[in-house]
Design a protein around this nucleic acid. Structure first.
Length: 510
RNA sequence: GAUCUGAUAGCUCAGUUGGUAGAGCAUCUCCCUUUUAAGGAGAGGGUCCUGGGUUCGAGCCCCAGUCAGAUCACCA
């Protein structure tokens, strides 16, 4: 074991032992009372000096400048950093100078966690600091920390390696001042949505993650096994079919922030587990749902940024209501220059090929339309836009369009060239639903691995009768990416899935 | 899955035509009572991602692999 340790790790273990020998517990159990934050002091000290005569604060040592019998320390808490002025004769008022000379100077390191008490003052050079009168070791750190420094916006020795940041998120959060920001915003976005939906009298619910049949989306699932029941179970790819059963049961509006799992590729837009918020509201349709989505996302933007205009990459995106609305056919006509609304399957294939859109013989009519849209129209949709009325083949859970044959009452909101949410007037005709499932089974037999399976329990539920219902699924990770101008989904998920690597690979020990 | 790029000290990175492995910070030692990306001076620290190959000699060239990033394809 010991021979694997670096010099610095050995030194820190030695310091730990020395601290113990001096009778100091390097990992004390009792609470440390804190009455102030780093940011609080920096923001308010000038105005309210008297309030900072007896401060108590704890945090991590991020830098240290020892000047003999006086030292400067940067202490970091959750709000930021504050400088400490540690003077030997202040923390060691008697003859015994061990706490300063031994413990503080020799055995404490960058990365250790300490608690201090003292008063706030301004140094000669004008930096607001804490004059320390008491210092307590709260946690000894055994690994050296990357030292990131900043001056006038320039960063030195930044800990930027994306792989390291994702694999060691704790470290990322400690040393990169902006790292917490995105996750705090994520939490605020979720709160904002929850607040919005609760306000409108919807009920937050929880439905199974482990499902005997997976459904509600076109995707390949993760499969697992229940030992006692000796049966396969699937990690949910969506919770749609369960939430609709609750609507059958009589709830007016239900929603769930659901972790969904899809056994597919990973890239900057996809993580195998991701969060989706699904909402179902009885006696409403997709037009009503569009209004709701606009209102909700506008509120999220305002809650987060106090403006509806948000810079995302090179684009400024404005979520102010109302958003543009166009049918899928209109979008294709606008951006690809062809009117496909009256075309049969053969004409569609020819059109797709002439547009240079990748199609193959296995694709049905709906799939071809979707391909054309996805390649020609979607990337052009930067400002939030509702695309409505999708081909029926692609939407086995959506209600047939009240006017147009071959279409369903479905919309997606597209933003920055990517889908933001997906919604429809939910199919509540049980016989139609059964036929759609059967069609999916046929697709499955032809080798479509993402085809849905027939869920008899769900059919039984809607045979009792589900009121007309509007349903919505909105990708929370994607929304957070846009709202925080994050380039990759890995930047908005604390622990994105990574291939195990090296000696610390999480392997099962049996 | 495909293509391109990358992996060197705790961190950020250099490393020339193939010829003793480098810097800054961090660490260690000494000095120092208001410094600030780094107070001053000195010292130590390496599985050059892994495994083969070519060569008198490989961090560097060749082959295979691992992991990551970017782009593309599929999915939210």
């Amino acid at each position: 074991m010991a021979e694997n340790l670096s010099e610095q790790e050995i030194v820190r273990r030695h310091s730990l032992e020395e601290i113990r020998k001096l009778g100091i517990d390097p990992y004390p159990a009792d609470t440390y009372e804190i009455n102030v934050s780093a940011k609080g002091i920096l923001d308010n000290y000038e105005k309210r000096k008297l309030d900072y005569q007896n401060v108590s604060i704890a945090g991590r040592i991020m830098s240290r400048r020892v000047m003999g019998n006086a030292s400067f320390v940067e202490l970091q808490d959750v709000t930021g950093r504050i400088q400490l002025y540690v003077k030997r004769d202040e923390i060691c008022p008697g003859e015994d100078k061990t706490l300063y000379n031994q413990v503080f100077k020799k055995y404490l390191d960058i990365g250790d966690i300490i608690g201090v008490k003292g008063y706030v003052f301004t140094t000669k050079v004008g930096e607001i600091s804490i004059h320390v009168s008491e210092l307590k070791v709260l946690c000894k750190s055994l690994r050296p920390l990357p030292i990131v420094k900043e001056k006038e916006g320039e960063t030195f020795d930044a800990f930027t390696d994306a792989e390291q940041r994702y694999r060691q998120r704790s470290l990322d959060l400690i040393v990169n001042p902006g790292a917490m920001e995105v996750f705090i915003k994520r939490s605020r976005i979720v709160n904002s949505i929850r607040e919005f939906l609760n306000e409108k009298d919807n009920l937050e619910v929880e439905t199974p993650v482990l499902q005997p049949l997976y459904g509600g989306a076109a995707a390949r699932p993760f499969k697992t096994h229940h030992n006692a029941l000796d049966m396969p179970l699937y990690l949910r790819i969506a919770n749609e079919l369960y939430l609709k059963r609750l609507i059958v049961g009589g709830f007016k509006g239900v929603y769930e922030f659901a972790k969904d799992f899809r056994n597919e590729g990973m890239d900057r837009f996809h993580n195998p587990e991701f969060t989706q918020m699904e909402l179902y509201v009885a006696y409403k349709d997709y037009n009503w749902m569009m209004d709701l989505v606009e209102e909700m996302v506008e509120k999220v933007a305002l809650d987060l940024h106090e403006t509806t205009a948000i810079q995302v990459g090179e684009n400024e995106i404005n979520f102010k209501r109302p958003w543009k609305r166009m049918t899928m056919f209109e979008a294709i006509k606008t951006y690809a220059g062809v009117d496909i609304s009256k075309m049969d399957e053969k004409e569609l294939f020819e059109t797709a090929k002439s547009l240079g859109v990748h199609v193959d013989e296995k694709m049905g009519k709906g799939k071809v339309i979707d391909e054309i849209f996805g390649e020609k129209a979607e990337p052009n949709l930067i400002q939030p836009t509702f695309i409505t009325d999708y081909p029926i083949e692609m939407s086995p859970l959506a209600k047939k369009h009240r006017e147009h044959e071959g279409l369903v009452e479905r919309f997606e909101a597209i933003c920055n060239g990517k889908e933001l949410c997906n919604a429809f007037s939910e199919l509540n005709d049980p016989e139609d639903q059964r036929e759609r499932f059967e069609h999916q089974l046929e697709l499955g037999e032809k080798g479509d691995e993402e085809a849905m399976v027939l869920d008899e329990e769900f059919l039984r539920a809607i045979e009792y009768g589900m009121p007309p219902t509007a349903g919505l699924g909105i990708g929370i990770d994607r929304l957070v990416m846009i709202m925080t101008n994050s380039h990759s989904i890995q930047d908005v998920i604390f622990f994105p899935q990574m291939r195990p690597k090296g000696e610390h690979s999480p392997t099962l020990k049996k």
